[in-house]
Write a protein that binds this DNA or RNA. Structure first.
Lengths: 358, 358
DNA sequence: TTATTGTGTGAGACCGGTCTCAATGGTAAT
DNA sequence: ATTACCATTGAGACCGGTCTCACACAATAA
């Protein structure tokens, strides 16, 4: 036995067919596992394939079938463990249904998101799962949908775009979390979130183009209303997109003459940063400041005190949206569904009545 | 204007050519951006393409060119934030060089790893990056390499398989971490790691088939030797593959008549679990137990006390291995390189002299 | 004027599969 | 024996691009 295959040209059905002494069509039937072939020929072909170490070219296969067996996923930020879990839910579900996943990160930037979608369409993915980074410009999503490719939305709904969507009940979650604080006596509460906006001051919902962010703010505001908090005590801070910015925002917030007595963080990355700033300033949680965060990140249980969180079933979210998509891929025709997954609050030790009953 | 495109058949070069009144070949030249075309015709074709909303079919393109523009990545466990960072490094580097990434998770199981490799080869990825889950069975890796497709190894070297490899200097890192402990006076130290093995008791290196694990144990042992520790005080524990198992192992360890006075965790997932168990038992870190972990996970700074870590430049690791691979993809022929990236120890508050100077 | 060179374009093969359709041969029914 | 039917197999088109090659025509050189 001399040296093995010299060049990169791979073994094809035609090669196998020749080796087995049958036609290309017949070999293809065996190797592609379709049509009918006699037992004898089947084993001949399989033997030849084995012998030549034949590996099907999925690309060529996809070309003719039109199906690639790939689901494209565009997600805001994989670093964020919330999305990490969601992606895991997607992958597991996809894989067990025989699909592969191509992952793209939009960094929450609409232009990157559009580019990613273009690439995935180019790769002829069978369907897409997207967390739209904003609701103003969704032409690329409409395009996908119009082209007949199934699309499902994850974590963020688009009010006037009716496709399969799976979100958590953000409004309610935010309201309940806020109520937990107001019930404790807090009357000056900050909500820090990571939306892209020039300037960190929140004015009105007209600025907000991400449904989940919007709904949470609405829930927060509703709870503040019920507690009779004056508008100036509802501190909605936008733009916490990086640890640096979060740090700055938190610092500014805590340097006010009347700092908030409680903070709600819109995700665990933000909460972690807040925690660091708070500790660095020598403040105690929960005595000096109460803290609640969205997402039950692993670290929230090991701090002192452990953090009270709004638990979002991220894995389930991913699983559910993938199931929805796959059912469509299998040809199921039905009106778009909007599924809202409930959240729960896990109370740990980071909430207490404010010291200064202001 | 009636309703838009009725079915799924997408616009092809032929369609554009027809609309522009040129041959398929010419349209392809413009759209594929190769060959020479006159300015006038170019703009005609582009206009037609725009008008028809032409999107190139990357699949078909890959078919003929043989290049897919995709790098396949098989990683042990994406949940683990070490790999998360590495993958981020890979993605960023790949993307900026014009490549896409398909990610697969092996769950550290050799069979899953093999299946993943098969799928990726089927998709005709241009090259692969793999963290081999063990060194005994690497026939699938040899196959990749033999087929002429570039392959690079991440985080784990394979002694007798010479391909581009990027690892951290595990042996040294483990040795230095252990020395930090012995210098403090520790003489009974546990090392908990996540290798797959029946029974948690470590006997000898013959059991270990993952290079990084092996090297770390060697480093740990070397430092123990220098400190003159008896073999029975070097507690290497295998099998911490899930939080549950880690919990059980740690519990058993701390229930010994002579429990270790210090523990080194082989990754941050394990360390987190150890931390929880320790706290649950009412033990104090570092007074009752010192703790060091591999990987500077985000949570290690917010615990009380913060954890001393071995910082592995995971992002750099991913970036480096991708650069190596891409250089090969671009046709660079050179002997395989083995790059070892240095680590550093970040001392925080989880190491102190043992109370019981035993 | 004729030969030479070069530029832009078109025709058609090709990549490696799938799939339609016709042809073959054997068996059952008439 | 003839016809009908079924199970297998083979030939070749097709998917949507790339790429080779031949050719037409214009510009330049001889």
């Amino acid at each position: 036995m001399k040296s093995s295959n010299p060049k990169i040209r791979s073994v094809t059905v035609a090669d196998v067919a020749r080796a087995a002494g049958v036609s290309k069509a017949t070999a293809a039937r065996v190797l592609g596992n379709y049509g009918v072939v006699s037992e004898k020929i089947r084993s001949d072909v399989l033997a030849a394939a084995q012998q030549l170490d034949y590996r099907p070219n999925e690309l060529a296969r996809s070309m003719t079938t039109g199906r690639s067996g790939i689901i494209g996923v565009v997600v805001g930020d994989i670093e964020n463990s919330f999305f990490g879990f969601a992606v895991r839910g997607i992958s597991d579900t996809a894989r067990s249904a025989g699909f592969n996943v191509i992952l793209a990160n939009s960094s929450e930037q609409i232009e990157v998101e559009k580019a990613a979608v273009r690439v995935l369409i180019g790769k002829r993915v069978d369907g897409l799962i997207v967390t739209p980074s904003e609701s103003r410009d969704i032409s690329h999503l409409r395009d996908i949908h119009r082209s007949g490719r199934p699309l499902a939305l994850l974590d963020r709904a688009l009010p006037d775009f009716d496709v399969d969507t799976v979100t958590v009940d953000d409004r309610n979650a935010a309201r309940r979390a806020t109520e937990l604080l107001t019930a404790c006596g807090h009357r000056r509460i900050a909500y820090i979130t990571a939306v892209d906006f020039a300037g960190h001051e929140y004015k009105d919902l007209g600025q907000i183009y991400t449904s989940s962010v919007r709904e949470r703010i609405e829930g927060f505001m509703a709870a503040c209303d019920i507690a009779g908090m004056p508008p100036s005590n509802r501190l909605v801070m936008l733009g916490a997109k990086t640890p640096q910015e979060t740090c700055k925002i938190t610092d500014k917030l805590l340097s006010r003459p009347h700092p908030p007595t409680a903070i709600i963080a819109s995700d665990s990355v933000i909460a972690l940063e807040i925690f660091k700033v708070v500790r660095q300033r020598g403040l105690r949680i929960p005595e000096d400041l109460s803290l609640i965060t969205f997402h039950d990140a692993d670290w929230t249980t090991v701090t002192s005190p452990p953090i009270t969180v709004i638990d979002q079933p991220a894995y389930t979210l991913g699983k559910t949206v993938t199931e929805l998509l796959i059912r469509r891929l299998k040809g199921e025709a039905r009106p778009p569904e909007r599924i809202i997954v409930p959240t729960s609050i896990i109370e740990r030790g980071s909430v207490a009545p404010p010291a200064d009953q202001g």
